[in-house]
Amino acid sequence: EPLWIRPDAPSRCTWQLGRPASESPHHHTAPAKSPKILPDILKKIGDTPMVRINKIGKKFGLKCELLAKCEFFNAGGSVKDRISLRMIEDAERDGTLKPGDTIIEPTSGNTGIGLALAAAVRGYRCIIVMPEKMSSEKVDVLRALGAEIVRTPTNARFDSPESHVGVAWRLKNEIPNSHILDQYRNASNPLAHYDTTADEILQQCDGKLDMLVASVGTGGTITGIARKLKEKCPGCRIIGVDPEGSILAEPEELNQTEQTTYEVEGIGYDFIPTVLDRTVVDKWFKSNDEEAFTFARMLIAQEGLLCGGSAGSTVAVAVKAAQELQEGQRCVVILPDSVRNYMTKFLSDRWMLQKGFLKEEDLTEKKPWWWHLRVQELGLSAPLTVLPTITCGHTIEILREKGFDQAPVVDEAGVILGMVTLGNMLSSLLAGKVQPSDQVGKVIYKQFKQIRLTDTLGRLSHILEMDHFALVVHEQIQYHSTGKSSQRQMVFGVVTAIDLLNFVAAQERDQK
């Protein structure tokens, strides 16, 4: 057995438009009618409502009807409940999964919650491996369901041993009777949507819809739904939504950006999952974080739909894509998950301010006199920076000697690579993860907040409520011999709460 199987392995699926269902090699399930009293909570997966979006479509000038398939009504709160249950049931049916076995899954959280929910009911041990950027709410729900959680670096490539995929496979090879159901490759993922989600949409719309818009992560949702719609409703256009920084969209030119990270969760990847059939997507749109969270908040405030950030991405694209539809036509959007997962993220004004998705003037509360002053007023001194090749031991000596707790790590040209902190280095040394002679590049981390000289002290204040420091950066445009230009970030300084307090105190003292 291989040590790991690539999540982007070539698909062996034989589905073709027009091929009889009787030739399918898979076990198919028909939607079942729910009894009045459910035998367990797993029976509350599927049969989610279709809700008309009344205000947002009109606000953006849509002539067509805009409908939302509300997947956050599933038992675990997301569309991923469907595939989690289906993968477990299919693994039980073919004898792969037996009582007492362990389920391991690399996930952005929602599939993990679905699997942990099913594992709690069915009696399996469950280990979820997820990147650090995923919300604390997801972690809390997983723990409450009895799952064990392993976190991995957000910026690790999918084929790196440190990625959530790599760590999951390492655990599988170490733990007896453990299984990775593997949402990236498992046919049960798109089949769950082909058999149930798509049929529900067709039934709820009486077979009449002209466009379907869905955000894409593993691709199982859009693949399964689109294949069924292509068979039953061939005139329906399928629109895929991919965040900026991901590479799922086609044509490839759409993916060209210097951005590699994004805040919206559960969609987009740096590889093409095996289950994603991009041939059934008629057109791709890219979405960005700001519009995703703005539209998610709009869905909550104006439509009462308590959905997550990827739902915002989907609707932001839908109001663009559906401009081509006329009166009497219908566009369906998939709202994948609930706001429950993001209470401390985009639902929080403070978080939105820190990330730059909300401006101070958007909030009406009274601010102190210094709130709208610029960061450049602080008069920061030149920063202490270190090269990635310097040793951890030497870096600790320098920081202690100069009285700093942290320093930016830059390359020879001064471009920011990340940050090192005294606390992080000492804990890594004590844990045996690094040696004093190791290069400081081994303990770089990139989960820090950046701020510009033109940003306000109010925004800085919000950042420092949650973080010990902020890195002050400025952009530099560099022209190359080819005539092309590129933008790079340079370090201007490091600012802490002490710097802000000293500035405010000094100004008030001078005024007296």
Rank of each mutant, 00 (worst) to 15 (best):
G240F: 01
V241G: 09
E244Y: 12
S246P: 15
P251F: 01
E252M: 11
E253R: 12
E253N: 15
L254W: 09
N255V: 05
T257Y: 08
T257N: 14
E258T: 15
E258K: 14
Q259F: 14
T261A: 04
E265L: 04
E265R: 04
I267T: 08
D270E: 11
D270F: 04
T274H: 01
L276F: 07
D277N: 12
D277I: 01
T279E: 15
V280Y: 13
V280C: 15
V281M: 15
K283A: 10
W284F: 05
F285N: 07
N288Y: 14
D289G: 01
D289L: 01
D289S: 01
D289R: 01
E290K: 13
E290F: 06
F293T: 04
F295W: 13
F295D: 01
I300F: 08
I300G: 01
I300Y: 06
A301I: 11
Q302F: 09
Q302K: 04
E303H: 11
G304A: 01
G304S: 05
L305Y: 08
L305S: 01
L305T: 01
G308T: 01
A311S: 13
G312R: 06
G312A: 01
S313K: 06
S313Y: 01
S313N: 07
V315F: 09
A318L: 01
V319W: 01
V319I: 10
V319A: 12
A321I: 04
A322W: 01
Q323N: 07
Q326F: 07
E327F: 08
G328L: 01
G328Y: 06
Q329A: 11
R330G: 03
R330N: 06
R330L: 01
C331T: 01
V333L: 13
V333K: 01
I334Y: 03
I334F: 08
I334S: 01
L335Y: 04
L335F: 07
L335W: 01
P336S: 11
P336I: 08
S338Y: 01
S338Q: 09
N341Y: 04
N341A: 01
Y342P: 01
M343V: 09
M343S: 05
M343Y: 08
M343A: 03
T344D: 06
F346M: 10
L347I: 12
L347R: 03
L347P: 05
S348W: 06
D349M: 01
R350A: 13
W351P: 05
W351V: 01
M352N: 04
L353Y: 13
K355H: 13
G356S: 10
F357R: 01
F357V: 05
F357G: 01
K359H: 15
E360I: 14
E360N: 12
E361G: 10
E361T: 13
D362C: 01
L363F: 09
E365T: 14
E365C: 11
K366L: 12
K366Q: 15
K367N: 12
P368Q: 07
P368H: 05
W369T: 01
W370V: 09
W371L: 09
H372R: 05
H372M: 04
L373Y: 13
R374I: 14
V375C: 09
V375T: 03
E377Y: 01
L378F: 12
L380I: 08
S381P: 13
S381L: 12
L384N: 09
L387H: 01
P388Y: 08
T391L: 08
T391F: 12
T391A: 08
T391N: 12
C392R: 04
C392N: 07
C392H: 05
G393S: 11
T395F: 05
T395V: 10
I396F: 09
I396G: 09
E397F: 11
E397H: 15
E397A: 12
I398R: 07
I398W: 07
I398S: 12
R400C: 13
E401C: 12
K402E: 15
K402T: 13
K402Y: 06
G403R: 12
G403V: 11
F404Y: 09
F404S: 07
D405A: 12
Q406P: 01
Q406C: 08
Q406D: 01
Q406G: 14
A407F: 10
A407V: 12
P408G: 08
V409H: 01
V409A: 15
V409T: 14
V410E: 13
D411T: 14
A413E: 14
A413T: 12
V415C: 15
V415G: 12
V415R: 11
G418A: 09
G418F: 07
G418Q: 08
M419T: 13
T421V: 10
T421P: 13
L422S: 09
L426N: 09
L426T: 15
S427K: 01
S427F: 09
S428I: 14
L429Y: 09
L429V: 10
A431T: 14
G432P: 08
K433P: 06
K433V: 10
K433D: 01
V434M: 13
Q435H: 12
Q435P: 09
Q435I: 12
Q435D: 14
Q435R: 09
P436R: 11
S437E: 13
S437C: 11
V440Q: 01
V440L: 11
G441C: 07
G441W: 06
G441A: 12
V443S: 14
V443L: 07
Y445M: 06
Y445Q: 08
Q447C: 13
F448G: 15
Q450P: 01
I451Y: 09
I451R: 09
I451F: 12
T454F: 09
T454Q: 09
T456F: 12
L457H: 01
G458L: 05
S461I: 01
H462Q: 12
I463G: 11
I463R: 07
I463Q: 13
I463L: 11
D467S: 10
D467Y: 01
H468P: 14
F469N: 15
F469Q: 12
A470V: 12
L471W: 15
L471S: 07
L471C: 15
L471Y: 09
V472S: 09
V472M: 12
V473C: 15
H474T: 15
Q476L: 13
Q478T: 11
Q478L: 13
Q478E: 07
Y479C: 10
Y479K: 15
S481Y: 08
T482V: 09
T482R: 13
K484M: 14
S485W: 13
S485F: 13
Q487D: 14
R488A: 11
Q489A: 10
Q489D: 01
V491L: 12
V491W: 10
V491D: 01
G493N: 15
G493A: 15
V495C: 11
V495W: 09
A497N: 09
A497G: 09
L500V: 11
L501P: 01
F503E: 01
A506G: 13
D510V: 13
